[in-house]
Simulated assay, not measured.
Amino acid sequence: MRLGQNFLIDERVASRQVKYANLKKDDVILEIGAGYGILTKKMAKIAKVIAIEIDERFIESLEKIPNVDVIHADALKIDFNELDFNKIVSNLPYQISSPITFKILESEFELAILMYQKEFAARLTARPGSKDYSRLTVMAHYKADFELLEEVPPEAFRPIPKVASCIVKVKPIGRRFDVDEKIFERVTKAIFMHRRKKIKNALALEGMPSHVPYGDYRAEQLSPEQIAYIAKFVSEHGLV
């Protein structure tokens, strides 16, 4: 396997992804990691597709698919805001799940249907108090809603991965909280870096004040809204 990617080969799964995306003929779909083009071909029958693929082995075959613009490049190095699309449907390369997700959230789109490794999908959709609730959960929640649609078995891919995958629906919401994103990120990072400690102690360890709301709680006990409240308190009181 080159570039560490597992490619979808199950036509039935690809068909369901297309259905989840509710594609219309005037949509323009961004696909990241087109691979063999299983999903690409199905989408291109309905709407225009912009397919990004880093692996040169697939470029020639992808370029033969009608209604597809192929970009041979590393998706992490492309400015998505320079591309004209309104939906994203992709089987994402798992090794870049985190950076590509936050890159996607920086772009403008109506809806995304994304395939993730099951463990990563669980973290994106986790609830406060659960073992999967993390810094990733909270930061992703800042800009979008995530819904787990279905689990996909390893046999749907080649090479066959050791773990299951999940299809996740992403609906952007702009900025969920009225708080500076950088301060929100700094507070979130601090409390999850020291998640076994109380909030007041975790913030103090990272050079921030400890006299904040929910100071006696721990990170996994707080909702993203409560963490945003702490960040706003810190910001409004000029504490960072």
Rank of each mutant, 00 (worst) to 15 (best):
M1W: 04
R2A: 07
R2C: 01
G4K: 13
Q5K: 06
N6F: 14
N6S: 05
F7R: 02
L8I: 07
D10K: 05
V13L: 04
R16L: 11
K19R: 14
D27R: 13
L30C: 09
E31D: 10
I32C: 04
I32G: 01
A34W: 04
A34G: 05
Y36W: 10
K41Y: 06
I46G: 09
A51P: 06
I52G: 01
D69F: 10
D69T: 14
F80S: 09
N81S: 14
L83C: 12
L83R: 09
N86I: 12
P93C: 12
I96A: 02
T101V: 06
I104L: 15
L105H: 07
S107W: 12
S107N: 13
A112M: 08
I113T: 09
M115W: 04
L124S: 09
A126L: 06
G129N: 15
K131Y: 07
Y133I: 03
R135E: 14
T137F: 10
V138S: 05
V152C: 09
K162V: 05
I167N: 01
P172A: 03
I173E: 08
R175I: 05
M193E: 15
R195T: 08
K197G: 01
M208C: 03
H211L: 11
Y214S: 02
D216T: 08
D216F: 05
Y217M: 11
Q221K: 15
S223G: 07
E225L: 13
A228M: 04
F233D: 01
V240D: 00
